[in-house]
Design a protein around this nucleic acid. Structure first.
Lengths: 335, 335
DNA sequence: GAATAATTTGCATACGTATACATAGGAGGT
DNA sequence: ACCTCCTATGTATACGTATGCAAATTATTC
């Protein structure tokens, strides 16, 4: 079992290298031979061995994708277009949903079974980027970025997104504003918070310590944080969430606590995942083009691998966010 | 660039085969040499080439996973535990979210770059299972099953699940019952419908043609189908959905149409995905252990590959479903 | 102390493909 | 008719690891 190019060669009456050349469209092989080889290959159901090819070419056309948690509703919307774009560029996707880090995880990436890596959930304090750089394995950051120094990345202008959210809340007359931000060790968490804070400061509105929460980009973060925020005085009339998933958690708590949204509480998310537009939520949020971001990451990486990247310098694709007004925002009560 | 076992051998002052043996814990190598080799390997940051190893051992410890659509909220809950169990069994996951079928898709599976396949979205009329069987590539069906003849599979007793849903509706006194089923060319769609119909028939309750809809296991299916069902007379007082995602779509339409759930309309889903328990939905549904199902599939496949499967006969793991009563079901109005 | 057994290591090679280089054959020019 | 040049193909080998078998070393036994 296992047809090789030698078998095809024997049947076609040519040498093995000729088979290799014929099947990959090498122009130096005559049309007649090419036809003969094609026919023999088809007759034998020949499929070239990927391992043999990899060993010889030192390239696998395989990309590793690192995500911490697939069940987070956000990531599939990144993974799916990423997969499709990689496929379009004739690459396959290997999925790693690692919880372990650096050294441990690195070994499975460094066995030359992949040509490059997409880091979709890298943290600012992760040593993985420098480890990959040291081992000269090409990689690109998607959605989040690592710490210094910068690398190829496809991201959103998160700071601007935070500012947009803040300005909208200010415009609506909110004065008691809360934030349920993402983790401080992620670029998305940090930058969205930063932009939000700066825009509030510009409007001379305070974001109290008591109205600030941080946590993973998960449903439970929003659910738990809003429950706590509802216990503070004054109760905030608006809350900006680090992403939609957190916002959905907040909405969950609001519903359970019978807090009317948006009449009593304005909620703004970030990302505009499809769920945000469901009737059950009608979440006002900051949209960006997640699909394009994923596709851009795929292209950056493949170009880097193939050496067709214009320069050795890191290249960044930065997408513009915009406000999507739905049903969870309203003017502050009493305005 | 690219440290090989030869480099390690040179540094340790032994032959390349000895390096191979030492690092893989072959007992025939002395403790002293093993230590020497380990040290040299560590000093050079040696990581064995996966391609070289695959070529030699004819095994990749890589598993292909086929899913049509990752953005469907159901699948990540299958993929995540599947990944983790495969990882536990020392295998890696290659993800294929193919839309193409059979011949085209098959080639990327047949280049010996994977040792086996998990089919998570196989249809009853797919020729892929027989193609894989013919090419002797081990595979297992997860959640759904293919047509004849049966293969290794980890599935739910969908027929029983359908029956449980039907009996509950009957118990609640519903007489005008509708069904938004999944695709008829999937085992899950077919069996859930079958069990549901049979239990209704036992109770001598008709399921009218006009109250029956089919479609992909997607949000839009439920949304669109319920909109249509609300136009029928008599309007159904209860609807059983092929899975939770369809049910969420139905709830979406109900909300937009101001149909009170559960007072005016009972909705029952299938799967019990985490979202079902969110306050926005509180979906009554048929639960089964998705994580265990995924893990079982991983084990079946790896055992099949390693040849440790007890027999050549197909092996099936069938999980029991149960009713999870939440907030979307109630007695029929007027009972 | 010699013969034998057991242990440890090296040698040769297989795995399947791609490619640098050599070569054979044919076309074209004068 | 001879030389040149190009095209098409074959030969030899590299890629990195694992393994059957032989060889060398050490331990064991009588």
């Amino acid at each position: 079992m296992g047809i090789t190019s030698h078998d095809v060669a024997r049947l076609a009456g040519v040498s093995q290298p000729t088979v290799s050349r014929a099947l990959r469209g090498d122009t130096r092989v005559s049309a007649a031979t090419r036809a003969k080889v094609r026919e023999a290959a088809a007759a034998l159901n020949y499929v070239p061995s990927e391992a043999g090819r990899s060993l010889s070419t030192r390239s696998t056309r395989r990309i590793g994708v690192l995500v911490t948690d697939l069940t987070n509703p956000f990531y599939p919307h990144l993974i799916a277009p990423l997969h499709d774009e990689l496929e379009r560029l004739d690459h396959r996707m290997m999925l790693f949903t690692e919880r372990t880090e650096a050294a441990v995880a690195a070994d499975r990436l460094l066995d030359r079974s992949i040509d490059g890596v997409v880091l979709a959930t890298v943290t600012l304090d992760s040593t993985l980027p420098e480890e990959l750089r040291r081992r000269e394995l090409p990689f690109v950051c998607l959605n989040r970025e690592g710490g210094s120094p910068s690398s190829d990345a496809a991201v959103v202008d998160n700071r601007l997104g935070g500012e947009i959210a803040a300005r909208e809340l200010v415009r609506l007359g909110h004065r008691h504003i809360a934030g349920i931000f993402g983790p401080e060790n992620t670029s998305t968490g940090r930058d969205r918070e930063l932009g939000f804070r700066m825009a509030l400061a510009d409007a001379e509105i305070a974001l109290r310590q008591a109205h600030t929460r941080h946590g993973p980009f998960e449903f439970e973060t929003g659910a738990k944080a809003l429950a706590e925020l509802l216990e503070t005085t004054p109760v905030p009339t608006a809350v900006f969430c680090g992403n939609d998933v957190i916002a959905l958690g907040a909405l969950d708590t609001a519903k359970r606590a019978s807090v009317a949204v948006p009449d009593e509480l304005t909620v703004i998310g970030f990302d505009d995942i499809p769920m945000a537009s469901w009737a059950a939520f009608e979440l006002t949020t900051i949209r960006h083009d997640m699909h394009e971001m994923a596709r851009a990451a795929a292209r950056l990486l493949v170009e880097r691998i193939s050496g067709s990247a214009d320069s050795a310098e890191p290249r960044r694709v930065v997408l513009e966010p915009e406000l999507i007004a739905r049903g969870t925002h309203a003017p502050a009560a009493g305005n």
